[in-house]
Design a protein around this nucleic acid. Structure first.
Length: 272
DNA sequence: ACTCCATTACTT
DNA sequence: AAGTAATGGAGT
């Protein structure tokens, strides 16, 4: 029980990410916010995702931009068939059918990469990420949540495995317990963008490294050339932003899908 | 507001 | 069936 501390939330929550409904029932018109994509006229590899044909039933009404006002950057069109929202209009009108977005490899790659560094993101960080990935804030938030649960499940399995092996305990298996208290500070000052712990983490990656939850997690192989990236963030690869405030640079250009794909030749496919 | 958690439901 | 995006409830 002691290993399950509840995250102390800050009473003064951050401003609402979206002006969608404050009521428990957000999107009325659509169960999901789907940024959906601009008409990309680019001829991408058709074999990237073998998903069902693109539904023309995409309602422009349902698609809401995650944050159009706060995104100074230009979003690049999603990769080939990256976000497929399965929109099944039930004719029976009795069943509620979920729309499941299929994230592209690129999106997952960036998300995972970020997760390795940060298990918890602040509001602004999530927003930034959502901008980069052309996803909604909500989607990023949910993804991180699901990710944490996934990690937890994996660790549980590891523990059970070790138990079966009758190993001599282990302090290394308490990844969660060890890292929780650190992150519990919750994030986000309404005025600031970076959480307290995050700032430390940025300066001292070692502070966050101890997680070491990759005991058995899928290998996130990033190209060596990028591992040495000064920023250490994949995002920096996608956004060539000029941090120089004052220097009239071009409005943050993102790479196109093909360019990105060229960045990750190893990650193009993983089938079979 | 956010989180965790169980659950649902969709994709492969 | 497995993996996981998305929902909803309960707790902070």
């Amino acid at each position: 029980m002691s290993a399950d501390p509840a995250p102390p939330q800050c009473p003064a929550g951050p401003e609402a990410p979206n002006s969608r409904g404050p009521s428990p029932m957000p999107e009325i018109s659509g169960p999901r916010e789907n940024p959906a994509s601009l008409p990309t006229s680019s001829a991408e590899t058709p074999r990237a995702e073998t998903v069902s044909p693109l539904p023309s039933s995409m309602d422009p009404l349902t698609q809401d931009s995650p944050d159009s006002s706060t995104s100074p950057w230009v979003k690049l069109p999603p990769t080939s068939g990256e976000e497929r929202t399965a929109r099944k209009e039930d004719a029976t009108q009795g069943k509620k059918q979920k729309m499941r977005t299929v994230f592209s490899q690129i999106q997952l790659y960036v998300l995972n990469d970020r997760y390795q560094r940060q298990k918890y993101l602040s509001f602004q960080q999530m927003q930034e990420l959502s901008n980069i990935l052309n996803l909604s804030y909500k989607q990023v938030k949910i993804w991180f949540q699901n990710r944490r649960m996934k990690s937890k499940r994996q660790q549980k399995r590891n523990l059970q495995k070790e138990s079966n092996s009758v190993t001599q305990n282990s302090s290394a298996t308490t990844e969660y317990a060890g890292f929780y208290p650190c992150h519990q500070g919750y994030l986000l000052n309404p005025s600031g963008n970076l959480p307290l712990w995050s700032r430390q983490a940025w300066n001292n990656p070692k502070l966050e490294q101890p997680d070491l939850e990759n005991c058995e997690e899928e290998s996130l192989q990033l190209p060596i050339q990028f591992q040495q990236n000064s920023m250490g963030d994949l995002e920096s690869i996608f956004k060539t932003a000029g941090e120089s405030h004052g220097v009239p640079q071009q409005p943050t250009k993102y790479f196109s899908t093909q360019e990105i794909m060229d960045f990750f030749p190893n990650y193009s496919e993983h089938s079979t």
